[in-house]
Design a protein around this nucleic acid. Sequence first.
DNA 1: GGTACTTATTAAGGAGACCATCATTAGTAC
DNA 2: GTACTAATGATGGTCTCCTTAATAAGTACC
Lengths: 396, 396
Amino acid sequence: MSSLSLKGGDLSRLRQLNSVSVIKALRGAEPATLSMLAERTGLSRPSTKDVVDELTGLGWVEEVPPAAGAMGRPARRYRFRADGGHLVGVDIGAHNIRAALADLDGNVLAETRRPARPDAPLEERLAAIKRAALSCLDLGGLTMSDLWMVAVGTTGLVTPEGRIIMSASIPAWKDLDLAGLLGETFPCRVLIENDSRLAALAETRRGVARGARDVVFLHVGRRMGTGLILDGKLHRGFGAAAGEIVMLPETGWVTAPEDLNSSAVVPEGTPIEDAAGFTLAAARNGDATALDAVGRFTKKLAVGAAAAILLLDPEIVVLGGGFSRSADVLLPPLRHRLERVCLRMPKLRGSTLGDECVVLGAIDYAIDHLDQFFFAPDGPALRPPVRPAIVPERTV
Amino acid sequence: MSSLSLKGGDLSRLRQLNSVSVIKALRGAEPATLSMLAERTGLSRPSTKDVVDELTGLGWVEEVPPAAGAMGRPARRYRFRADGGHLVGVDIGAHNIRAALADLDGNVLAETRRPARPDAPLEERLAAIKRAALSCLDLGGLTMSDLWMVAVGTTGLVTPEGRIIMSASIPAWKDLDLAGLLGETFPCRVLIENDSRLAALAETRRGVARGARDVVFLHVGRRMGTGLILDGKLHRGFGAAAGEIVMLPETGWVTAPEDLNSSAVVPEGTPIEDAAGFTLAAARNGDATALDAVGRFTKKLAVGAAAAILLLDPEIVVLGGGFSRSADVLLPPLRHRLERVCLRMPKLRGSTLGDECVVLGAIDYAIDHLDQFFFAPDGPALRPPVRPAIVPERTV
DNA sequence: GGTACTTATTAAGGAGACCATCATTAGTAC
DNA sequence: GTACTAATGATGGTCTCCTTAATAAGTACC
């Protein structure tokens, strides 16, 4: 009951409720007729028409040509104007900067990826972020001023206000007001979140964990991490430090990637980013040394995973991150270990979104915030679709 | 956005919304005047009057004599009729059965406690539960038919439907439809929940963690367990198996109580239930052997606690259970260990509700369910206050 | 004891949002 | 060209809320 508003309301509140209801019935679906909307929302046809007309006037909804070939008088059809606003999701990794442009339904319109040097100075990295976003906008035929929101996923500890405390893999990320700095670059709200959490969100909204209420996302790669979705929402924790089970010495997660990166099957001189691939490939082919390395790795992985599963009893655990390209190699031994410990074994799956996970999660995160701003049923009256002003963050 | 209803509504929905708003403004507070209610709910005075009159007619609200001594015409005052319904919370432990009678605001009206034998046969235990509830009702001058709901907290794994899979400390608790069996005893809905989770709820609603959104409750006693409150709600997990970090071998929680129960300072022949008390008391006085035992115990405790804190980043961690009577002894070494591992140290407190924790949590849990039934803003129309029929559980 | 002041109550008028109903319209089927 | 189908558009009614103004019931003070 805690999140329910205490305030009552008048007729306009009811209209707002019904407007939101109509928008929800339209979003991410085929164009709908008034009869369909009336049925979905539970409103009468005349009222539905009223609401749709108002939303059309505001610019949220648009009429499309009627569908032909049916009996009776052709029904007018309406759709949500997902192209009414645009947002950019950014994944700032140590070695890559990815960005994607999306509409209000989260459809990706353009995408870019450019390499980065982990030890690049701050200015260079910030400039690269800006370039990545700009080239996305360019590909989509848009400009900065069309942007409604930018969401950034990056490694490290991020405060609720968008400050970065520190990051293990990006030296320049250290006690940094990233939201503030990017706020000078972009003429809109900038959100910062931990990348593993965003990946978890993407898998829950559009990946292998779609529809699940409680999800544990395990990031396995050159660094380890977790992201939690609890009750369908991204869980940040009181100080936005949730998911850092990697710091628990008993898991051995800090050094776990070494098991795969420096096994005997990795050829001398292999760059670190390709090392684990050799081990995993060899293990897939039955190489004993590689299988041993995989065994040691999954043993450690299982400790942290079991801690999360036993504590939270999620519906599904998703394996993501760089190593998850070899989920077929990692999942069986991991499952085997978990089954010995877990009271109730959750579903266990490899990520289906792969490298784009964080960017997609950033987009989904931004959309959640926009929805909060525009469509929260207990929020202010429904606004016309104009770029939200840069206002203090609402408590989510 | 997942829990928001898609359905729109008509005028009656608005009235329902405002009725709920008024009830929330009245509950658990001093009697209020119309002007106060109007301000709290944001409604106009005439509308507030309308709503209050309707609620009075339904029986949810009652007028009380006006307060004297103020300027101007005395205002009529109204209060929520918390005594309109009653519920019972039960704590079924291995050695004790506690029960408490409460009104709809959660005020405890009567309380009983009677010993039980851990190995008592099922029939005997069920009869003891019934007797406990009956004597509570008797003390409050009520009968079974006044009961609206019974909530039971007990050890072990409880399914969402109220089946008990198994319990380590009560042999008779094994693959048992406890909700069904008690449903034959009580003429109302019976809820079953894990006791650690209910204790966590009580601490969050009325204990040391009041108002916190994310809470980790550590049950330390002859058995170990945890209860989680996430986003203000009791977290059960997909299969209601959340909080079972005790099963993680790396924590050593299964045998941890032994450290305190069988230290050298415990006199020969001490009954097991008193053993740890000797160790803790000796440690408080500086005894080296006892301090060593406490050190070993808190080392294990810290592993599971750190796992929960690192994963969830709670606002506060509450130490409860039998051993928490000596929280002053346990907290300093626990804090010391946690500070070395945790990225952000949460508040760390001993339980303030003590032995009544589970019973109070059961009451709070029952009230949550009743609120869901009567006052959910997206639920059915506001009903008059009559004992809820026994219906299939609504998804929470 | 009477008057001024303060605060609540009650009543009346008006606006907004919903619903049900029915005549009308624009297609397809034959 | 006629029958059928299904959506549209218009009308009137009800409900809930709001604003405003007149009335009522106390306290404070002379």
